[in-house]
Design a binder for these strands. Structure first.
Length: 363
DNA sequence: GATGCGTGGCC
DNA sequence: TGGCCAAGCAT
């Protein structure tokens, strides 16, 4: 068996790989486009980066197109009603992103004349923009030599340097390595190349090292086990919470909806009335907690896995003749549910009680 | 530094 | 099939 000593990595082989193998993405100015003089639009870069936080490219594509069609500029987004923005974001998850997206657009429109700041520091001062997004927008939209580090880059760097310290403790060291590797020329392409490499070659399982532009300079490969990097801290067990949700429908085809409080889980989104979601399994999950007295019947249950707990929701249903006066909520035509800011768990719950409520109901 | 915060696809 | 993972941020 040959033991190779890796050479120190440099940006050049990666940029050459990117020129040949970059992905074409709706929000991306690829090297051929750049050669034709096309410049990245900071609004497009920012919007895509926020949508891509912890979210796959495939999931983002239709949302990105829909947002640009509805709101072509950051000022349009700033002037849009929040309810429409939340409804357009529904299904994409992590709804604090949508709330901060709106706040950020308003700040850019009112405090920066509709022009995004062109420095990491200026960008990071805006709502919903942290270390990663500030560096990504600065590098991709403004050609700043910023060290961009996301999950892909963490994986690539941890393997290049065989970093044995577990994440997240290893982040400062990794950031140093990225900063030293980031070129003054084409920093935006370098960042996008690192992410493309992580997404297509330096994958979590079964990386395609034979195709990698760094395969002469990767310490993890020289150790014959790239998959063991990055090392991660062990994660906690996911608890189970239970609750009940209530679908009330009138003979006119109206359903009772509510708006959730602005902060916390599914903050600001629309829901059907539910109990609190707790670890308990007793009366809290029964029809006793319904929004009004009626002959509630069971409509089965749905399970939904959130980031930090699993929810088992018992569904109850009732048909009533006329709308009741409800303090906290409103009656919405079932035919208009697609236009509501309903998170996926709520669509599942409604679909359990009204199977034809959504054309593409899941669960 | 640890925790809360969605969803869908993959093997 | 269920655990893992995806271009993280705020507190």
């Amino acid at each position: 068996m040959t033991i190779r000593t890796p050479d120190a990595p440099t940006a050049s082989p990666l940029l050459e790989w990117y020129d040949r193998h970059h992905r074409d993405l709706p929000w991306r100015v690829s090297p051929p486009m750049a050669r034709r003089g096309i410049k990245a639009d900071p609004y497009h870069v920012w919007l895509s980066e926020v949508m891509l936080q912890q979210t796959t490219v495939q999931a983002v594509k239709p949302y990105f197109a829909n947002f640009l069609a509805k709101w072509p500029t950051v000022t349009d987004l700033a002037n849009a009603p929040s309810e429409l923005v939340m409804a357009a974001w529904a299904g994409l998850g992590y709804y604090a992103r949508a709330r901060n997206l709106k706040k950020c657009a308003e700040a850019v429109a009112s405090q920066h004349d509709g022009i995004f700041p062109d420095t990491e520091e200026g960008l990071k001062a805006l709502p919903g923009i942290g270390d990663y997004t500030a560096a990504a927008v600065a590098a991709i939209a403004f050609n700043r030599q910023a060290a961009v580090m996301d999950g892909n880059v963490e994986r690539v760097i941890s393997r290049l340097y065989a970093i044995a310290t577990p994440l997240p403790a290893a982040k400062p060291l990794m950031r140093q390595k990225v900063a030293l590797l980031t070129p003054a020329d084409r920093p935006g392409d370098f960042a996008q190349a690192m992410m493309d490499l992580g997404a297509t070659i330096c994958t979590p399982k079964r990386p395609a090292c034979s195709l990698c532009p760094f395969n002469g300079s990767c310490e993890a490969l020289s150790l014959h086990d790239p998959e063991q990097f990055p090392v991660k801290a062990t994660k906690k067990e996911k608890p189970i919470r239970r609750g009940a949700a209530f679908v009330a429908v009138t003979s006119d085809g109206d359903i009772l909806l509510r708006r959730r409080v602005e902060s916390g889980l599914l903050g600001g989104m629309t829901e059907i009335p539910t109990t609190a979601w707790t670890a308990r399994q007793d009366g809290e999950t029964s029809a006793e907690a319904a929004p009004f007295k009626a002959d509630w019947e069971s409509a089965g249950s749905v399970t939904h896995v959130f980031t930090h707990f699993e929810l088992r929701l018992s569904i109850f249903r009732v048909a009533i003749a006329n709308r009741l006066k409800i303090d906290d909520g409103w009656w919405e035509p079932v035919t208009n549910l697609e236009a509501q800011a309903l998170p996926t768990i709520m669509k599942k719950a409604i679909a359990a009680a009204i199977p034809l409520a959504f054309k593409t109901a899941k669960g």
